[in-house]
Computed example of a mutant assay.
Amino acid sequence: MEFLEPLYDKAESLWIGFVKILPLLGIALITLFITWIFAKVLSGLLKRSLSRSNIRRSLVELFGTLLKTVIWLVGGLLAITIIFPSLTPAKLLTALGLGSVAVGLAFKDIFENFFAGILILLRKPMRIGDFIECEGVNGKVEHISIRETYLRKTDDQLVLIPNSFLFKNPVSVLTDKDLRRFDIIVGVAYGEDIDKARSIIEESMKAIDVVEQDKPIEVYAREFNSSSIDFTVRWWSESSPLGMHKSRDKVVTAIKAALDNENIEIPFPYRTLTFKEPLSIKHHSG
């Protein structure tokens, strides 16, 4: 059994080394526990103090997250130097600097989304609760984290979008202001009086409660369509998607009723069919 002696000696030396390092492990765990307490308490105090000011909630979350990250970074470095006394903070920082290129390449997307998230949180126009649209994706901003943004669509689906996607592409903030302009197209028959039709449409819009009357209501003749003269009708209403649907419903209903009351025709498309050869009509006797 002599061949087992080297293994026994190795196991014994590992066990002795582990026993010697146990106190250091205990101190390191205590350090991490104190770090956790400090991170929780200080970030909570920071969030409460910032919440009393006019700073946006997304920025409060950002500053709280950054403070936690710094505290955990310092606490982690202290715990490592306690377990391995030969590793000084200077050596650890040097090692982190040498490995930063490899880490940066390995976690490129994560870092990209991290910094994009910080810049998005600092960017004032997009707030929690806003409805936004970006490259065909739209919804209400529910939460902006360091890595991704949570959008709640109008059908209640949740969409998680990487922050770098929102930062690189144009973003339309639909609810940046309380009011937004909407438009529809209304067609009247060629035989109708254009000025009269325009006047009727304008008057019908003035009686709609969801249409902002302090903003201009615009009706413009826009083109000769195949079977109608088309008008562009513009108005201002609540900027949310629900506000758009409500105002559009009432506008279409009011214009239709007003034109019907004045016997102004809203035509449907006409089609004329031509045939190369004359068509023969056959009479069937009873």
Rank of each mutant, 00 (worst) to 15 (best):
W236S: 10
L46H: 10
I16G: 00
K47E: 01
I281N: 07
I83R: 07
I21W: 10
M1F: 07
A116Y: 06
D130V: 06
T149K: 15
N263W: 09
E277C: 11
T65S: 13
P269R: 08
L25C: 15
A258Y: 03
G191A: 11
K246P: 05
F111Y: 09
K250I: 01
A257K: 11
D109Y: 08
F38K: 15
E203P: 04
L22D: 03
R222D: 08
N169W: 03
L73V: 09
A102P: 03
A207M: 06
I80F: 10
N163H: 04
F131T: 05
F38T: 15
S51V: 04
I201G: 07
S145P: 12
G129R: 12
P85G: 09
S285D: 14
D209F: 10
A207S: 09
K140D: 03
S247G: 02
M244Q: 08
A39G: 07
T31L: 14
L42Q: 12
N163T: 01
H245Y: 11
F107L: 15
L279W: 12
I266R: 14
V252I: 15
L73W: 12
A116R: 13
R147P: 02
L22R: 02
S199I: 04
A197M: 01
I71G: 04
M205H: 01
I201F: 03
A95E: 08
S51N: 10
S58D: 15
D193S: 02
I194C: 00
